[in-house]
Design a protein around this nucleic acid. Structure first.
Lengths: 315, 315
DNA sequence: CTGTTAGCGCCTTCAG
DNA sequence: CTGAAGGCGCTAACAG
């Protein structure tokens, strides 16, 4: 008992006894069981969970770095979960995090069904979404200007004279997949260009499939003169295809990426700071953790990270 | 009690009752407190710590992904710590992990002083090093063939006729910084080429400084005809410099990276799988966790990941 | 098949 | 200033 008190620096223990405790602790190699302590104190160990779909994608690793940085500033650590684009795995991770009684969770959701997040939230754990707004859920979220960025890039291609602009995208069921396509469609519509389904492909999740999809389009009898790719995987896949075919059609893509400015063909990207996405999400989360409020009373917050169109010239 | 049993799938509970429990659990949003469970079972929370220097570098994010994957297979989660190349922060992270009683720690150490790891190990937590061997420490480690890879790349440049080959590297105090330089030196020595300190620069940790260092070399009166860069940051920095100057000197670098094969100048890289590094490290760690042995009795294990020289042609 | 007892390591509360 | 009692949420071992 006295040791317990000494270790947490209780003023009721005399300084000399504290010193004796310290030396004994060091000699015996004792260290307090934080898990038991936290159980008794009814609090969790200063841990936040982070669920991303694919850490190998620089977008997510930069986001993770941002979350880690802010969490660290608040004295918290981050538990990492990689869902690998698998909804079941995401659900499992969130459930695991909830039963570990983490202090909060940041999720970049795979799909559009967020019921499993609801369950976690019900247990009193704050949840913040990144890159996608909550569905049937009252939760804070940090998002990108998906629509605006896509619209701007497509609009720019149109202004440059293109009328046959292909779209390479993520699955329509995802928020970003849908919003970025919507931005593309809106820009076409404003210019009076009808949507041509033959040059729209929306199922690519990696570079290889994006490259294949682009090659198929290039091989059509009436190929596009430009491509808008909805994320960095699609942009890089499209670049590989275009470059491989020695084609010189224009390319624009959502997401900036390393070496984008050093490629052999000009490229336009919708740029933003993925780290900022992570930082803002972690800030919202830490705020919820330190100022817990009844869900009903406080409205869910939304933060939108702006995007910027950047043109990389010929290197 | 019955719920407790049902949840852990005890055969003594009837299937139909289990079903009732499941629905009730779902309805109430209950989830078992893993901390309390672990406390009772006398085991720790199934968490391993991972300390990396910079998650924004794809090398580390791929490594982290590998660690996460293997840890997951073993039913463990990963706590992430980004040291940001700061030794003090690394020490702090390791100490924090130790007092949280994690089941194990994977560290990519910043410096060459590993005393703080010793302290963690003393508390009975297995430690595995990645990318660098332990110093004054009995611990498992997974490493790259730093020397061999660097030797091979430099040797290849020499065989191509180069005699003035610059070296761009990490700080000499780090293991990789030292080993990769040693490989470079050995290849030069075998070819009877004296080391020219004017074209050796060993302090670059990021792309910007690497680019600057390369530019300085290119501006020398007797510039190198080739560059060997000791990691992906230096290679990309060197590429930017060379391309920016419209120079066409040869470039080789340790680490493969995305789009390396799509650049406008040919490039040679020392390729290996960073994910494999993480996976093997996590495997060693999980083995230590499941088969705990007195330190003294079991020798520290070493795994070396092979490298392969790859030439990317002109795109 | 289900309930009771006891205790994991710690801390709060109340006596000494 | 220090100790004893009780309990955080869970489960192994033993009844019933």
């Amino acid at each position: 008992m006295t040791v317990s008190r000494a270790l947490r620096d209780d003023p009721r223990v005399s300084p000399e006894k504290k010193a004796r405790v310290r030396t004994a602790v060091k000699a015996l190699g004792y260290s307090r069981n934080e898990a038991a302590r936290n159980l008794r104190l009814g609090r969790s160990g200063g841990l936040v969970g982070l669920v991303v779909t694919n850490l190998a994608n620089p977008f997510y690793s930069q986001l993770a770095l941002g979350v880690e940085a802010v969490a660290s500033e608040h004295g918290m650590r981050v538990i990492l979960g990689n869902s690998g684009e698998d909804v079941a795995r995401e659900r499992q991770l969130v459930h695991d995090f909830a039963s570990r009684r983490l202090d909060g969770i940041v999720v970049v959701p795979v799909g559009s069904n967020h019921r499993h997040l609801n369950a976690a939230q019900q247990t009193g754990i704050p949840v913040v979404l990144a890159a996608s707004p909550p569905v049937k859920l009252l939760a804070d979220a940090v998002m990108l200007d998906d629509f605006g960025g896509s619209w701007e890039a497509t609009h720019h291609l149109i202004e440059a004279g293109h009328r046959k602009i292909a779209f390479l995208g993520l699955q329509p069921s995802t928020w970003t997949g849908s919003e970025r396509f919507r931005g593309y469609c809106a820009a076409l519509e404003e210019a009076g260009i009808p949507l041509d389904e033959r040059i729209v492909s929306r199922q690519q999740r990696d570079v290889a499939t994006a490259e294949r999809a682009t090659l198929e389009m290039l091989d059509q009898e009436d190929p596009p003169t430009a491509v808008f790719a909805a994320n960095n995987r699609n942009t890089i896949g499209a670049y590989r295809a275009i470059r491989g075919r020695r084609s010189n059609i224009a390319l624009a893509g959502f997401d900036d990426f390393e070496l984008a400015d050093m490629l052999a063909l000009p490229l336009m990207v919708v740029k933003y700071d993925p780290g900022e996405l992570g930082r803002r999400a972690a800030e919202l989360l830490c705020d919820r953790i330190t100022n817990p409020q009844p869900q009903a009373e406080s409205a869910a917050r939304r933060i939108v990270i702006p995007t910027k169109l950047v043109e990389y010239g010929l290197q």
